[in-house]
């Protein structure tokens, strides 16, 4: 569903991606752990088509229409209501928001409030709704659990589980090993633009992975 072949990209002298290759099949969730500056965000941006890699190729089945992105920025317009935001983003994908999406994230009662009037936790949930509004087959997540409150984090985990269960692919990058491990089917460690470990999770739990990560990256 998603593959990368020999990706290379440098910002000046800094090698953000140094020959990265992998594939993610439907139903798989790849968690990429790495310290800041390892190139994780660059990898996601290349997969999403935001950056043209200087070397190698990335391919996502279905193109941009199939990609959903959750990152640091909420991608929401403060003056518009929740519904107006969702309708706008959905229109760019040629679709309309479904009412159950709001229900699943507990946003129904806030649907007609402007986003700038919402609390941070609510805004995060709206951001998740926005990313899912066009029913993407591939999810790209850049540190998605950062700063989420408990309700939002649970909702997100739940949604990601469903996403995988319906045969979709996810790539999740984070520097926090605890967060991503439960959901992952495959695990990779990234350092200086390279994958220094890439294997199925195979029953390892968060502590195992954390220990291996510390060894690999420290």
């Amino acid at each position: 569903m998603l593959r990368a072949d020999g990706l290379r990209h440098a910002f000046g002298p800094v090698r953000a991606l140094d020959d990265v290759s992998f594939a993610v099949q439907p139903g798989q969730t790849l968690a990429v752990f790495g310290p800041n500056g390892a190139g994780k965000t660059t990898l996601l941006k290349v997969l999403a088509g935001l950056i043209q890699p200087q070397g190698g190729r990335a391919h996502v089945e279905g193109g941009r229409r199939a990609i959903g992105w959750i990152g640091h920025q909420p991608q929401l317009y403060g003056q518009l209501t929740v519904t107006e935001n969702l309708r706008f983003w959905a229109s760019l994908y040629g679709t309309q928001p479904s009412s159950e999406l709001l229900a699943r994230l507990g946003l129904e009662e806030h649907a007609h409030r402007p986003v700038r009037a919402l609390s941070r936790g609510l805004v995060q949930r709206v951001a998740i709704a926005r990313a899912l509004v066009h029913d993407p087959r591939v999810l790209l997540l850049d540190e998605p659990f950062t700063g989420l409150d408990r309700i939002a984090a649970e909702a997100l985990s739940h949604l990601l589980g469903e996403h995988a269960a319906t045969g979709r692919a996810t790539v999740l990058v984070t520097h926090n090993v605890e967060e991503g491990t439960e959901l992952a089917t495959d695990v990779a460690f990234m350092r200086n633009g390279r994958f220094v470990h890439f294997a199925p999770r195979s029953g390892r739990d968060a502590r195992d992975i954390a220990a291996e990560y510390r060894n690999a990256v420290a």
């Binding site: 999403a48 088509g49 935001l50 193109g63 941009r64 229409r65 990609i67 992105w69 990152g71 920025q73 909420p74 991608q75 929401l76 317009y77 983003w89 760019l92 994908y93 040629g94 926005r130």
Partner: peptide, 9 residues
Amino acid sequence: AFDGLLLAP
């Protein structure tokens, strides 16, 4: 929100 616009098809 600009990245969102760039990501959209």
